[in-house]
Design a protein around this nucleic acid. Structure first.
Length: 407
RNA sequence: CGGAGAGUAGCGCAGUCCGGUAGCGUACUACGUUCGGGACGUAGGGGUCGCGGGUUCGAAUCCCGCCUCUCCGACCA
């Protein structure tokens, strides 16, 4: 993509009210735009990052047997009335009315929808286990949205629901999800700790959170650096004797053993091998995708801007031309086409801007590989190459640059 | 929902105390010079001063009500 073709651009003055790194750099860099408290538009650059995160998540969920669906965000009130959560979750449920005063809620989670859905297809133990997931925007009327895209009122989430014949099978799948989630976070360039947490109002059973250390987070966790395991402060009293480090962290994922609460509410039963009718055992497993994008920024930035991990960077290469002489632009276009043909994603800053503006924007946007092409480099038939994560600059022959790229 | 701060040009701000018809930086447009780490000159465009009411000859400025955003706390499937 030629940078000059984007309708968006960076801002020289960062927004005054952006306190956290993710809000500051994502807005200043033209990745997102704030509409209201906790409500953001994802612009072309930001959406590319989110799509990369989604791709990683889809691959890992599919690998453990997850089947992707997409459920409605508009929920008839009856579904929530069935579980009683229209009352217990009333303060964060957005409510709206349709024709004839029919009440709908905007989905903040989907147990109320997926359980009756699965009931249409599951009759026998032979239909179990199964796992269905979706990637979709959730709506939660948070009393206080904050920290950029870390805590929003509308946010993108991957939620997976699993259905099992017995507790042992849920336990088995639960461990698979833990491993899959750790792969997701690792591929996103994050170090995540698996911490024991309370089930909230949702479940009194087992729950684990995936926490990433950052001062922008809201949770206090106690963790073991070696095993990558730990406890959330809310349950850590029981574990005070252990040798754990205390840290501030953001919850990037959360998995729950739901038991039979929802299957019993909606009458989701199956027939076992002996002809006995039993409630299906459920689990739910979430990753806040838009929050994850913000978390990646919190964990990967410096005073100049973002330093995207290669797997989630909006582009692999930031090609930067200095000056706009015919020969520089022609050589750059040739290199640009060559990189594209080799499946290298390139953002070419072809604007007629001064060097300082382009360098600063490149640092702010944070694409891992930076290539500079100018009269000076072209005279030697070379380009200048630099990683965003490093201060080292080196000259590379034009026809060898592809081999240097890291992504 | 409690506490604190803030809403004036796309963004960052001054002006408000002490009422007199709105300004600076940046960004934007044109021309010229310059141009490898956010150049300079000249000329220009851009505003329901968050909204509503009140006081006054006159309100960005004073008074009343409301809305929104940010931070701290509470809350947090």
């Amino acid at each position: 993509m030629r940078y000059s073709h984007y309708f968006t651009h960076t801002f020289k003055n960062p927004p005054a009210e952006a306190d956290t790194a993710n809000a500051k750099y994502l807005i200043q860099g033209g990745f997102v735009s704030q509409l209201s408290a906790g409500i953001y538009t994802f612009l072309p650059l930001g959406l590319r990052v989110m799509h990369k995160v989604m791709k990683i998540i889809r691959e890992e969920m599919n690998a453990i047997g997850g089947q992707e669906i997409i459920m409605p965000a508009l929920h008839p009130s009856e579904n929530w009335n069935t579980t009683g959560r229209d009352v217990t979750c009333a303060d964060i449920l957005y409510r709206t009315e349709g024709h004839g005063g029919k009440v709908f809620y905007l989905g903040q989670t989907h147990e109320e929808i997926v359980t009756p859905l699965v009931k249409q297809f599951v009759n026998s133990y032979k239909d179990l286990p199964l796992a269905a997931y979706q990637i979709q925007n959730k709506f939660r009327n948070e009393p206080r949205a904050k920290s950029g895209i870390l805590r929003g009122r509308e946010f993108c989430m991957k939620d997976m629901y699993s259905f099992h014949a017995d507790e042992a099978d849920l336990d088995r799948f639960y461990q698979l999800v833990i491993e899959a989630y750790l792969k997701v976070f690792e591929r996103c360039g994050l170090e995540a700790y698996v911490v024991k947490a309370s089930g909230g109002s949702f479940s009194d059973k087992e729950s684990d959170e995936f926490q990433v250390l950052t001062d922008a987070g809201e949770d206090i966790i106690y963790y073991d650096k070696k095993t990558k395991r730990g406890y959330n402060e809310e349950v850590s009293n029981e574990h005070s004797g252990e040798n754990l480090i205390k840290g501030k962290a953001v919850e990037a994922g959360n998995i729950f053993k739901l038991g039979t609460k929802f299957s019993e509410d909606f009458g989701l039963y199956y027939m076992d091998e002996h002809g006995n009718k039993k409630p299906v055992i459920m689990g739910c497993h979430g990753i806040g995708i838009s929050r994850l994008v913000g978390t990646i920024v919190e964990a990967n930035h410096d005073e100049k801007g973002i330093i995207w991990p290669a797997n989630v960077a909006p582009y692999h290469v930031h090609l930067l031309t200095l000056g706009n002489s015919e020969d520089v632009m022609q050589a750059a276009d040739k290199l640009y086409q060559k990189l594209l043909h080799n499946n290298v994603e390139v953002l070419w800053d072809d604007r007629d801007e001064r060097a300082g503006a382009k360098f600063n924007d490149a640092d702010l946007i944070g694409i891992p590989n930076r290539i500079v092409l100018s009269e000076r480099t072209l005279n030697q038939n070379q380009v200048e190459f630099k990683l965003r994560s490093s201060d080292q600059v080196k000259m590379i022959d034009l026809d060898k640059i592809i081999e240097e790229l890291i992504f």
